[in-house]
Design a protein around this nucleic acid. Structure first.
Lengths: 450, 450
DNA sequence: CACGTGAACGTTCTAGAACGAATG
DNA sequence: CATTCGTTCTAGAACGTTCACGTG
């Protein structure tokens, strides 16, 4: 094969020339070749076993050349071309069909070799003797490890010595994953909002209902006579009403029982779905007393509250949500929620909402009516009761905030880990700044003086 | 230019990769290199490990230069160039291909170093000896911590020349990102529950308030015919009413029990729902009527509130949804808004909770009383009037959610540093603010002492 | 003015593309 | 003719060095 020429030298005449020069005996015989010689180029076999000719030649070249021109590094992990010019002129042509160092380097490149930096840390270290040195490294190209060559494959080929490819795949997969996760998160957010919205609507609806009911009752009652009647009849609406009567009359099982009864009555009304019942049951636990009591009395109270006096009270809190903002007019009604929110919102800017609610709650709590108790009871559920009324709510919010923060925090940590590396990250500046800014800096100043 | 000619070794890819892999002949001997050398071959190895040549050189430069010209600060956290001119003229050229201090500084800049201020605060403090001193600081550039250098990366760099390393880095980053995202999702799930609960509590609290207010009003108003009243009260549905009566009359189960009773009544109305919310919502659906009845009685109170006097007032504000909308008689009001809402809600079935709740709303909506208006009014506040009723609340909630999300989000991206502290703060608002605020502030200023 | 950053230009190394040659 | 490899030339990416600009 090699024998007679052939080889493409290709390009310029020089090369060719050179090649000519070259005897080509190539024979990189020695340890190396033999075997393959035949195998050679053909890709035939292959599998991993096939060793590209370029590698065989290069290995032999480094292994058997004058140390002054090219050689293995002391540890045998890399090879150094001490005099590229001479190497190109005298050595390369002996093995390849050209005499260009760049072409040799390109080939090394195809096979995954890397040029090692040769620059000294200190220029002073610069040594004319080594200045020209060019070192190449390949994980599987080491002195005495001819066997490793089979692991090296040309980059353009499927093979893959290049880890890069696999990694790329991984990267793409991960990117897809990230995209999906982000999407999921967005969906979750959307859902959350949706739920909250619904819940609010639901609550509002309920409130309306209550309002209506109350109004109606009032109307009915006013007539005076009716009430009684209503009782008998409507009773509740029954539901609740009924029980009441019952209780009275019978002195029913006041305690829980009484309730139960009442409930039952109610349930029947509501009756309906099992779901309801469940709900009810649960709900009760939490706020039982307060809630009830509150609610009961409440109504009338509300009017007041909302109305003039009370409202103001609520307002006091400061937040207030509700009443407060409303200022005068608002005064009466507690509707507030929003108002407060608004206000709060404005203030904080960022967190606006959450706080707002909290505040509102507080305002409410301020009312200090039985309600407050209720609220607590409620809140207590989640948290634990003891706190001041407002507290409960506040706590909730806090916790909420906390959670939010936590997340953030978590992210931080995590992120940190992430970012560090990432340098690549979009905003380098940020990274830099942050780093620089934070911790260290401050402390340091003092030091300056030095 | 300057020095020896150009050498640039190019740090680029090589450096990194190479450095790692490389055995080192490079010379950056000294303490420095060794480590890397081993690193081994594969370029794959660690991305992070790569240390830019600039840093190696600078480290070595500071570490091995005459103390008179450049040195570490006493604490080893920074380095000081005592005589920039001499440093530029004599030292820089030994390591780099130029002799300009500004170029050196520019590089330091790329790697995140900050120049510490050395100016004296008082003129009198001026010291000719230190006047020229220039101090640079980098969180990961400290005496005896050569290992930290790997954490420093060039700001502009996308990755290094080495694809492998870069890819690895990317992969790690992506993996971290995935972890964070997954965590975020988990948190979101957790938060969702929490938020819903809170929202419900909040709403319940408000409702209670209203109830109380109404009751009070009622009482006030009614004084006349008390007998009826009791009834009337009861009416409420008994719920609330009942209790009242009971208390009065029988002193029934007073205490808690009494409440309970009331509750029952109420609950029934509102719902017995367990947690207030749930109970109510649910209960309502089921038993609309009853509820109403109950509520009605209550309502009366409300009616008043909303209705004529007070309510109207409140309404004025605009917010308030309640009163305002209710306009005159609650009843009169056009319920609509909600209905619509409800409907929409219903649609979504998907969300488990929501739906249920929604439905409740529907029931309510069905009532189509003035209440609906009320609700709207309320909602409107937050948003601005025009929207559908629910909007206001929705907005709030949304915003709330948003905020929460933001935080989370923030965390991902920015926050890193920021949040850490927040949690502690008592007031939610504060927290938020703090968070945002914090991060940055600290950073630099201190340093400047100047 | 000082400091930090952006932009321009040069250098180095790696990778892509084009084309020839050899093998089957 | 299809495939693979060799050889060149060129493009891309990243860092290094300078110079200039904006902010305080």
């Amino acid at each position: 094969m090699v024998g007679p020429k052939r080889r493409r030298m290709r390009s310029g005449g020089n090369v060719s020339t050179i090649s000519n020069n070259i005897p080509k005996n190539n024979d990189m015989t020695g340890v190396i070749d033999e075997d393959e010689s035949s195998a050679q180029t053909s890709k035939s076999t292959k599998g991993s076993t096939t060793i590209p000719i370029f590698l065989k030649k290069t290995y032999k070249m480094i292994d058997s050349n004058p140390q002054e021109i090219a050689a293995w590094t002391p540890d045998g992990d890399m090879f150094v071309v001490k005099d590229p010019d001479q190497f190109a002129a005298d050595i390369i042509p002996q093995y390849f069909d050209h005499n260009k160092f760049s072409s040799f380097a390109r080939q090394l490149n195809f096979y995954g070799f890397r040029k090692m930096q040769s620059k000294p840390i200190r220029n002073s270290d610069f040594d004319a003797n080594t200045a020209k040195h060019v070192t190449f490294y390949n994980e599987n190209f080491k002195r005495g490890r001819y066997d490793l060559l089979r692991k090296i494959q040309r980059s353009t080929r499927g093979g893959g010595s290049n880890p890069g490819q696999n990694q790329e795949r991984d990267i793409n997969q991960l990117k897809d994953k990230v995209i999906n996760l982000e999407k999921t998160i967005q969906d979750l957010h959307a859902q959350q909002e949706e739920r909250m919205r619904r819940l609010e609507l639901d609550m509002l609806g309920r409130m309306e209902q209550m309002m209506l009911a109350m109004q109606q009752q009032q109307q009915q009652q006013q007539p005076q006579y009716q009430h009684l009647r209503s009782i008998g009849n409507n009773s509740m609406g029954g539901a609740s009403m009924m029980p009441a009567d019952l209780h009275k009359s019978g002195g029913v099982g006041v305690g829980p029982n009484g309730h139960m009864n009442g409930m039952n009555g109610m349930n029947n009304n509501g009756g309906g779905g099992g779901g309801l019942t469940n709900a009810i049951g649960e709900s009760l636990d939490p706020l039982p007393y307060g809630a009830r009591g509150a609610s009961v009395s409440t109504l009338s109270g509300l009017a007041h509250l909302m109305g003039n006096q009370h409202a103001s009270i609520g307002m006091k809190n400061g937040f207030s949500g509700i009443g407060a903002p409303s200022g005068i007019g608002g005064p009466t009604l507690p509707p507030h929620p929003k108002q407060k929110q608004l206000q709060t919102h404005n203030l904080p800017g960022s967190l606006s909402h959450p706080p707002g609610r909290v505040e509102n709650l507080r305002g409410i709590s301020a009312l200090s009516f039985g309600i407050s108790n209720l609220s607590r009871g409620i809140s207590s559920e989640s948290q634990g009761g003891g706190n001041g009324m407002g507290n409960a709510f506040e706590d909730k919010f806090f916790s909420m905030l906390m959670n939010g923060e936590k997340n953030a925090a978590g992210s931080h940590t995590n992120n940190n880990s992430m970012y560090p590396t990432p340098m690549s990250a979009p905003a380098p500046q940020n990274n830099m700044n942050n780093n620089g800014m934070k911790g260290p800096v401050p402390s340091r100043e003092g030091s300056d003086p030095i």
